[in-house]
Simulated assay, not measured.
Amino acid sequence: MPVIAASTQLTCFGDGSRTWDALTQGRCGARPFDPTTAARLNVGAGYPIAGGSDPGRAAGWLVTVLRAAVAQAGVDAHRERVVVVVGTGLRQLADVEHWALTATPCPVDKLHFGSAVRAALPGVRDIVTLANACSAGGHALAMAQDLVDAGEADVAVAAAADTTTLSMQAMIGRVADRPTERVRPFDRDRTGVLLGDGAAAVVVAPAGRAGPRLARLLATGLSCDAVHETAPDVGGMTRAMRDALHRADREARDVRVVVAHGTGTALNDPAECRAIHEVILADRGDPWVTALKGAIGHTSGAAALCGVDVALRGLRVGAVPPVVGLGVPLAEADGVRLVRDRPVAVPGSLTQVNSFGFGGVNAVTLLEPAC
């Protein structure tokens, strides 16, 4: 069973430590748009990383988290066979938009993350990029575990990066009745999702490798239901949950903490509550459930690994942060033990991280403390 040797993330609050502090303090990182932009897009705010307006910013954030994670784990790509798997939802779309709006030539060789990864980790053996919507980071983590388990890599790094784009914001605005000012996961009066800038990296290593051991990476369950282009499917969610439990040889009732996908949208939140009911509560489980997007926004392909980073910090200190922005829970959350207002103490135990993407690409990861 492989271990997670290092993890880091970058959000609107800063690095993983600053993000954890903001979550436990119940802070919201949303920043309002100027009135003209808000009116034009019908989107009121976003969750930006400071200074993130230049072309190539997503690749730059990816370099930052990769360098931090491999340094933390003591990875030497010249001595170890290292593979990096990058998950992303939007890839370099923000750069394409910039070049289109400024009528400048588009350097095609910059439209992938390979050069950024090689700059961050000279000597890396191979780089794979997965564009799997909002669960891309979870799929990258599943592939990283497979590479280590199969002996195809001495160390595998699952990484992810995404930045806000005009086209995605315009799409959000088209389906909203009014501009959303903040994300409110599982709240009765939620008004919709907002995008957040984000990047994260997780180092996966064999259990016998010398170095840090943050947690055991039990499994990532996957499903691809393809029921609808954008709407979630409860059946696909539950299949990913059960696949993770089966691979990990664990019972649903043993899950003590769920880091939910929690987008604050009319379709995802009720569906995710139903899936938790059908899999965990139906097996007499009663986990604490939290969600991050009220604090950091929807970081697209980076969302799963941002959730993993928070889960790892929670395992270390025995605490679960609250759902930022949650006032009155929606009716479908009845019986779901949502963390509200302040962190709760939960001794290190089995933790589940949900990520669900457009088209029904779902990934659910299970972690537990390292022995």
Rank of each mutant, 00 (worst) to 15 (best):
A319L: 11
G29T: 06
R67E: 14
A207L: 09
D15M: 02
G301V: 03
Q352L: 15
V344W: 13
L315S: 01
T163C: 12
D34H: 10
R91P: 00
R184S: 13
A5V: 07
Q169L: 15
V83I: 15
A30I: 02
D249R: 12
G327Y: 10
A252N: 03
L367Q: 05
S355Q: 08
T164P: 10
G335T: 05
R340I: 07
N354D: 13
V259F: 08
D283R: 11
A6N: 09
C273Y: 09
C12I: 03
T238A: 12
E80K: 00
D309E: 14
G335D: 05
L130I: 14
A231F: 01
A244W: 07
R40C: 10
N362W: 09
L147G: 08
I127E: 12
V84I: 02
R188I: 08
A120P: 07
G236M: 12
H246A: 15
A205M: 07
V202L: 15
L350Q: 02
M143I: 15
A295R: 11
D249F: 04
V310N: 02
G173I: 02
P48L: 00
S223K: 05
V148C: 08
H98E: 12
A170Y: 05
P179K: 00
D95A: 00
R250K: 10
L222C: 05
A77D: 02
V124K: 00
G16V: 09
G264L: 01
E251K: 09
E368H: 04
V324K: 00
T104K: 12
Q169F: 10
V148E: 11
G357Y: 02
G297L: 00
G151K: 08
V86P: 05
R81E: 15
P343H: 00
T24E: 09
V227R: 14
L10S: 04
G208T: 11
R31P: 02
E181N: 06
G357F: 04
G56D: 09
D254I: 04
L41G: 01
V65F: 11
